Simulated assay, not measured.
Amino acid sequence: MIHSTRRPSVGDMPVRRLGLGDLRDCLMLAIDRQWLPEEAKWRLLFEVGEVYGIDDPGGGLAGTAVLARYGRDLGAVSMVLVASRYGRMGLGRRLMLHVLDRAGDATVFLSATEYGRGLYQKLGFRAVGRIVTHIGHFRPEPEDFKHDGLRPAREADLTAIRGLDTHASGAPRAGLITRLSSIAERTWVAERGGKVVGFGAAWRNVDNVVVGPVIADSTAMARGLIAELASELHAPVRLDLGADLADHADLADHADHTDLAGWAAARGVRPAFTTTLMTRGGPLPGARARIYTPVMLALG
């Protein structure tokens, strides 16, 4: 019997909802695209998002995409990956159309590499700013620890922390913040007059510790939180810092966000790569000036 070696057409390969049993194949797909196998990140995405994929008839996954919903009006798209052997066959577009259909009328945002930006533009996304990822061993200065009112978070702070995140992101993300609190290596809050007014978390990824989110009402507070979170970690620190975000009215008067990048670089956490923040369906809601770093690029 002669077996056909013809690769199936894209239209013959259905999109399905993935589960934790597919985690290994997601990690292998990431490696195929020269991404790190970020197991902790993928596990969080499976818990708080909807992970979709296309099976490769030869084994493993041909592609993935993730949608995280924050209520009815906001969603984050991430991990749009297509195996190198299926490159430029339309799988990325097909996965994107699937998750956008699932998102409905919600405003959707993502962080785009140069490789994917053209596709997202064709699907109606527009660039609203840049995110510069800084990575390095954090070397604090004594003045970084002089901000008043900072302390480690307690379990009783969780309600206030979730409220701050909802206000800043403009969407209900209680499930994400609650789950993050259980995996974070450190969580600190800023307190003023007995009230929690800012917070930050740090969680360990494959080869670094992500400091995010950091939500504060001033750059000075953000610096203090980052210093407390990043000191004595004995591992490279990652900070995803926004730039050129004045397209958002809420951010137009907050040029001091860029000052944070210079402060981080002076302490050994230097620019590593840049992605483009893109939205579809409307502007991002919330008090965005308060978000100094996201939970991660994949979730905002």
Rank of each mutant, 00 (worst) to 15 (best):
122 K>E: 05
81 L>V: 15
113 T>Q: 12
121 Q>T: 07
102 R>Q: 06
82 V>C: 11
73 D>I: 00
95 L>T: 01
115 Y>L: 15
67 L>D: 00
80 V>D: 14
103 A>P: 08
68 A>E: 02
115 Y>M: 11
103 A>N: 02
120 Y>R: 05
117 R>H: 12
60 G>I: 02
60 G>A: 03
116 G>M: 05
101 D>N: 09
94 R>V: 05
89 M>E: 13
97 L>P: 01
102 R>H: 02
60 G>Q: 07
86 Y>Q: 06
88 R>P: 12
109 F>C: 02
99 V>P: 00
65 A>Y: 06
118 G>F: 14
114 E>D: 13
69 R>A: 02
67 L>P: 00
79 M>S: 06
120 Y>E: 03
121 Q>I: 02
84 S>T: 15
70 Y>R: 11
74 L>M: 07
110 L>G: 15
110 L>F: 11
66 V>S: 03
64 T>D: 06
111 S>P: 05
93 R>L: 13
111 S>N: 12
105 D>C: 09
65 A>E: 02
91 L>Y: 08
111 S>F: 09
104 G>T: 02
99 V>L: 08
80 V>I: 14
112 A>E: 03
102 R>I: 02
89 M>G: 11
78 S>Y: 15
98 H>V: 07
98 H>G: 09
116 G>P: 15
65 A>F: 07
79 M>K: 10
76 A>Y: 07
116 G>R: 06
99 V>Y: 00
121 Q>R: 06
84 S>I: 07
72 R>F: 02
86 Y>H: 13
109 F>Q: 08
78 S>Q: 11
106 A>K: 00
78 S>E: 06
62 A>F: 07
68 A>C: 11
103 A>S: 08
105 D>Q: 05
114 E>F: 14
68 A>I: 12
113 T>G: 11
124 G>S: 15
94 R>C: 04
60 G>L: 10
80 V>C: 09
69 R>Y: 02
119 L>H: 13
86 Y>C: 06
101 D>F: 03
71 G>D: 09
111 S>H: 15
104 G>Q: 05
63 G>P: 11
62 A>H: 08
101 D>A: 04
73 D>H: 04
110 L>H: 08
103 A>F: 00
71 G>T: 03
121 Q>E: 10
80 V>A: 14
76 A>I: 15
107 T>K: 05
118 G>E: 04
78 S>P: 14
64 T>M: 11
71 G>V: 01
112 A>L: 08
61 L>H: 12
66 V>W: 07
118 G>P: 14
69 R>C: 01
104 G>C: 04
101 D>G: 11
68 A>V: 07
103 A>G: 01
113 T>M: 03
110 L>S: 08
124 G>L: 13
78 S>L: 10
100 L>S: 02
92 G>W: 10
111 S>A: 10
104 G>Y: 01
85 R>P: 12
60 G>T: 07
67 L>T: 01
100 L>F: 01
112 A>Q: 09
66 V>R: 01
62 A>S: 07
76 A>H: 12
92 G>L: 05
74 L>Y: 02
74 L>E: 02
79 M>V: 13
93 R>Q: 09
107 T>Y: 10
91 L>N: 13
67 L>G: 00
103 A>Y: 00
